[in-house]
Design a protein around this nucleic acid. Structure first.
Length: 274
DNA sequence: TCTGCATGAAAAA
DNA sequence: TTTTCCTGCAGAG
């Protein structure tokens, strides 16, 4: 599920599997063929995730092609498929593979991304500048987001989805962090207290770091995970996300849902009364 | 096995 | 406001 934590994992895995080696690049699907040809033979120097955007920094080789950045945004469906083949031929592409990057040992296939472009350093910078504070970037400053939020008449549930305000939060983290803070998603940004925002930010940092470690979004506290008695070992990972009509894990009130900014919002009308 | 919905965001209309 | 990426998965059967 590509919220910010997933992209950070992509960055780490791509660097580990492909970094520092001369890569082969191709576009089995064809739509990225020209650009892939420009990447072919370059070395992946670094990966840099910011919010839901991933930047891959390719160094020139002695054959002197210009330095290039690859910009990837997975969007809703996009996914990296990584295989290790250790010198043996990699398995053929499955599905519509926009970009295949191979080292001697690993192959990464990118399918279904919203964005996969070669960009110049100024273009990379423009995207960084446009994005808001990312809870997963150590240098991120929640003050910047607060400046936007505390004078906005837009609801906090909508503000959290704006990547220029907070980068990397998606629909799951939005719903869950507001539940954990007991804040009504429709409350205007300017009606949030500073303490509430600080709490939400700190919680995002904690939740998303946990997401990076585990690869999934789990926001429930152990005491709120009680399920029926028996087996059904499905972990109750969320308080409200995708639980419309089901009882709130804390107060039992049916979870409500509504469309907000073209996304399904979920909240408990009692726990998040204001 | 089939169907419909889902984490996002840019471009088109 | 609608379309586009066109995958993964849960739930139905």
């Amino acid at each position: 599920m590509p919220e910010g934590h997933s992209i950070r994992r992509d960055a780490t895995q791509a660097k580990a599997a492909l970094g520092g080696q001369v890569l082969r690049a191709s576009s089995p699907q064809g739509r990225f063929a020209e650009s892939a040809a420009l990447l072919d033979g370059l070395v992946l120097r670094a990966t840099d995730p910011h919010g839901k955007h991933l930047f891959l920094d390719f160094a020139p080789t002695p054959r002197s092609k210009p330095v290039r950045w690859l910009h990837v945004h997975r969007g809703l469906y996009g996914v990296w498929m990584l295989q290790r083949h250790d010198g043996v031929e990699p398995l053929p592409p499955r599905g519509a593979v926009r970009l295949r990057l191979s080292s001697e040992t690993h192959t990464a296939d990118l399918r279904g991304p919203t964005a996969c472009d070669l960009v110049t350093p100024p273009e990379v910078q423009a995207i960084h500048d446009r994005l808001g504070a990312d809870p997963l970037r150590p240098e991120s400053d929640p003050e910047r987001a607060w400046e936007r939020i505390h004078r906005s008449r837009v609801g906090i549930g909508a503000l959290l989805m704006q990547q220029e305000v907070v980068a990397g939060v998606g629909n799951v983290y939005r719903a869950e962090v507001l539940f954990r803070a007991r804040v009504d998603p429709y409350r205007q940004g300017r009606d949030l207290t500073r303490a509430e925002w600080d709490g939400i930010w700190a919680d995002l940092v904690e939740l998303m770091r946990a997401g990076v470690r585990s690869g999934r979004i789990v926001t429930t506290l152990p005491q709120d995970r009680e399920r029926t008695s028996g087996r059904a070992r499905r972990v109750d990972a969320h308080y409200v996300y995708r639980r419309a009509g089901e009882p709130c894990r804390v107060c039992g009130t049916p979870v409500r849902t509504a469309v907000l900014v073209a996304r399904n919002l979920f909240w408990c009308p009692v726990c998040q009364a204001h």
